[in-house]
Amino acid sequence: MGFDVMDRREFIRSTAIFIAGASVPAAALEVMSAKELFAARPDIHWVFLVDTTKCVGCGFCVKACKLENGIPYDANVTRTWVERYVLTKDGKVRADTPKGARDGFITKQIDENAEGMKDIKDEDIDKAFFVPKLCNQCDNPPCVQVCPVGATYKTADGVVLVDRTWCIGCGYCIMGCPYGVRFFHPVEHVADKCTFCYHRITKGRKTACVEACPFGARDIGNIKDPNDPVAKVIMTQRVGVLKDEYGTKPQAFYIGLSKEVR
């Protein structure tokens, strides 16, 4: 009889082998070790350093960024901005960033959005300071994971970029960024974000915001170079990152970060 060609045991065995084989994704068959990934650009990994104690809230960085990168000057979008935090004696934390601080902070009044401009007496202030913000160029960028078309990606030297010819403008990345650094470019009609001035840093220059800052509150450097001044500070001093608990591994480090900063 033809039925004894395959008995039950044989059937189960071959089925198990087939299922095991079929469940291996094609991706798993390509060998790509972590070492190999790091070896791509072992010499450069860009990191940013912000010294919040030096920032005076002049907003020259925001102005320079907008003009350098062709971000519509009067549209309410910006790749970098400066936040003002004012902590009062009644325990309240107020923060604002009028026009992203493009024109700096020139009044004591704090923008409370729907509640209008709030006057705060000098003697009521406990603590007040400025915090510059920009893309953290995360090592685990959630904005890249959510892109359905491969328009945004991380370069070998650690910068997250957007391919304007490939972006479909779905906005997932804008929603996905926990730091709110992405926005929809009103002219290009694609997602836009800080590029660490990729066109400048790859030519041996610093970003526009770093060079525009008169007070040295911002700097960019290569964490892989032990002699880099920025790398030295990050390795040897007390620096913090924003929203560490999200596990995004942000690459913008802050000196003098206060717990009220979100």
Binding site: A40, Q145, Y198
Partner: peptide, 18 residues
């Protein structure tokens, strides 16, 4: 370079930005 999760893109775009 950055693998499947973060490195899926058009390589020429890096030069576009540069």
């Amino acid at each position: 370079d950055q693998g499947y999760m973060y490195g899926f893109h058009r390589l020429g775009n890096e030069q576009d930005w540069k």
